[in-house]
């Protein structure tokens, strides 16, 4: 049993080490990658614009649930006018960045892993090396950057649509006063809260994009290997996002 735990721990450490080295290699190619901005823009479109519908729909439904549950809880204390504050802070600080990152891992992350994995299994990456073209610079770095740039934009979209959803339920359906909803939100929400959301979504963007491109680049070049790598992307990204969310939330609370 102990040997099994040991070997699992060694394998996990080896993987973390490999990912750190890989991150170093990718970071060294981030500046050169800007020489071909078209490649980055294409990846922002793939990771960002193509995820927009699922992000907006999810944001709307999450906001609507938040409106219902928030109204139900707050009215017990006679403070249903604070629904806007609850929804805005919840969306900006936690739900927006976290759920966007989880959705990103499921949609864009898996797509990045399987795309790079298939390029590897069909010799496209080797072909690039044979054409004296560095695949880390032309394939990996633009996708990594595209994910990092797209994530905060998607999280912001999620939060805005979510707040609209909460307002739709709270104000339009439950009868919370619109003036109170928006004015209390405006008074209670600080720039500091917005920054927390931005920082979180940036960190999640780095984590999810790194895991996705790493898994794709390092996968076994077989159909089974690509499938396993895609699964690992979702599992690792999801756990990592939740862990990082706890650490960042604790760090921001300690600071304030």
């Amino acid at each position: 049993m102990s040997a099994v735990v040991d070997s699992a721990a060694v394998a996990a450490l080896r993987r973390i080490g490999a990912m750190t080295l890989f991150l170093g290699q990718v970071l060294a190619r981030v500046i050169p990658a800007f020489a071909k901005p078209g490649l980055i823009v294409k990846q922002i479109y793939n990771a960002g614009a193509r995820s927009l519908v699922i992000i907006m729909l999810s944001g709307l439904f999450v906001g609507m649930v938040l409106g219902l549950l928030g109204f139900d809880t707050l009215q017990r204390f006679g403070s249903e006018d604070s629904l806007g504050v609850l929804a805005a802070l919840g969306m900006l600080k936690v739900l927006g960045p976290v759920l966007t990152a989880l959705l990103f891992a499921g949609r864009a992350g898996t797509s990045l892993t399987s795309e790079i994995g298939l390029m590897k299994s069909t010799d496209q990456l080797t072909a690039m090396q044979m054409m004296a073209v560095d695949p880390l610079r032309y394939v990996v770095a633009p996708r990594f950057l595209g994910g990092i740039i797209a994530m905060p934009l998607l999280a912001a979209t999620f939060s805005v649509v979510g707040l609209f959803g909460a307002q739709l339920i709270g104000v339009q359906q439950m009868g919370v006063d619109a003036g109170a909803f928006w004015s209390q939100t405006q008074n209670a929400v600080d720039l500091h809260d917005v920054n927390e959301g931005i920082v979180k979504s940036l960190v999640f963007g780095i984590a999810c994009s790194l895991i996705a491109v790493f898994e794709g680049y390092q996968c076994e070049p077989t159909p089974e290997g690509v499938g396993l790598a895609t699964t690992r992307t979702v599992v690792t990204s999801s756990v990592m996002v939740l862990l990082l969310n706890y650490l960042l939330t604790a760090a921001f609370l300690t600071r304030s």
Partner: peptide, 15 residues
């Protein structure tokens, strides 16, 4: 490698 060209078994075209 810039002085070499290689034809892969499956073509290895960018899909």
């Amino acid at each position: 490698r810039q002085r070499m060209g290689m034809l892969f078994q499956n073509g290895a075209l960018l899909t």
